[in-house]
Design a protein around this nucleic acid. Sequence first.
DNA 1: CATATCAAACAGTTTTCTTGTTCGAAAACT
DNA 2: AGTTTTCGAACAAGAAAACTGTTTGATATG
Lengths: 252, 252
Amino acid sequence: MASADRHRQITDAVRQTGQLSVTELAELTGTSEMTIRRDLEILAEQGVLERYRGGAKSLLLRGEEPPFALREQEDLEIKQRIAAAAADMIADGEAVVVDSGTTCLEVARALTRRRLTVMPLSLHAANALVGAPQLKLLLPGGEPRPGELALTGPLTEASLAALRFDTAIIGCCGLNAADGLTAYDLADAAIKRAAMASARRVIAVTEAAKFSRTALAFVAPASALHSVVTGHDAPDEQTEALSAAGVVVRRV
Amino acid sequence: MASADRHRQITDAVRQTGQLSVTELAELTGTSEMTIRRDLEILAEQGVLERYRGGAKSLLLRGEEPPFALREQEDLEIKQRIAAAAADMIADGEAVVVDSGTTCLEVARALTRRRLTVMPLSLHAANALVGAPQLKLLLPGGEPRPGELALTGPLTEASLAALRFDTAIIGCCGLNAADGLTAYDLADAAIKRAAMASARRVIAVTEAAKFSRTALAFVAPASALHSVVTGHDAPDEQTEALSAAGVVVRRV
DNA sequence: CATATCAAACAGTTTTCTTGTTCGAAAACT
DNA sequence: AGTTTTCGAACAAGAAAACTGTTTGATATG
């Protein structure tokens, strides 16, 4: 797993400085230039950066979301703790819709051994759930967004509109009492809204960092949520503001 | 890949004799009993056989379909040749619906580099198509059948009913002029029918062996097909009968 | 045209997968 | 109950695959 660490190192370094040469990156990581070139090829394919002769420049300068493959490894233990707590809030036999994103993917994994009906909103989660023996898997239609594999579009909305779930597990890119729940992608935001509308109870799962962030697309006010599951490092002011809005906050 | 061969060997041997002991299988394959036990565990999970103390008995005695994982490797070159020929019949820019099954999975793989809109009817094919840069991927909703991962059910039918494709690539379990196109699974048959109804042109892809087979569920008469792509070892009588029914047969 | 950069090919290394052996536990049989 | 057989976990050896660095010829840049 040394390569994954190096990829993050390269991503962070290039992001901070804007651009770096192959030689500089080789020195920084203590590897050969050939290895750096191979890494840059992979990262360019993931859309993290753009190569030019002699080096690479970041494509993540603005407040954009890093690609799925990178986010998946980040804060994995925290995400798994949050996911386990959210899974605990679901009773056997329920019908659950699980949003796209890395935290929700962990929720899906936490649900594999359960007796439930689950509709995942991303192909990543769907793949994690196939083969679960007791689980009834239901897939919505839609267009999988590259990398994220989040299902979006009219087919997804139609699938959600036709169903009523007990619980919706929703991820987000930003969440706070003032700006509500926000997402980077407009199409995603529409799907999140549809998923929330089709469920009796809405549980948001989110790491603490997202409380200080507001993304482009507004999804819903915080009051639309019934519960929020987050890490123990969530700031008091934010959790209190959410509580005041009638949201049950659980820190794990 | 030695383990895959051994799995097939075990499957075939158990299927022929009905049941075999661990010791017999170890002798047959020239491996240790522990390896056989590990194999049996995997094959039991795939639904190929059932373990009992001392050995295993086949679950494929009747005319049932072997599981996906086993069929995927069988006659791979032939399937790829058929798939390449079918892919050649599709023009750039078309909207294509690709059925479930191992042959259709190869068609999906053959389409990855093309500029098309594709709706796969199984998660296997969907996974093969994600990441294809020029391809517009459209997923139907539905319930993925275990192992096969074929999408079925009302959501799938609704997705298909809402769309009109240029071409449908259809796989089958049995095909001949007398009994038409047949499938093992009733739910699958309904989806195949819906896919055929939503496409202007229907191309069936099938290995020669399926001409001598008729499965449980009737899908459509052979005359509903526009073309059939099959291997060069397809029997003349069958291809001629299909031609007489107005179907263009292509042997590759 | 000179220089720097790139990527393919090869080789050494590390890591992962697979397989066989041993051993204690559990199940069937007497 | 005692014996035998089977099972699966744990460990170790071997094979296969992945990763990395070096070399070398090709390609782009000034």
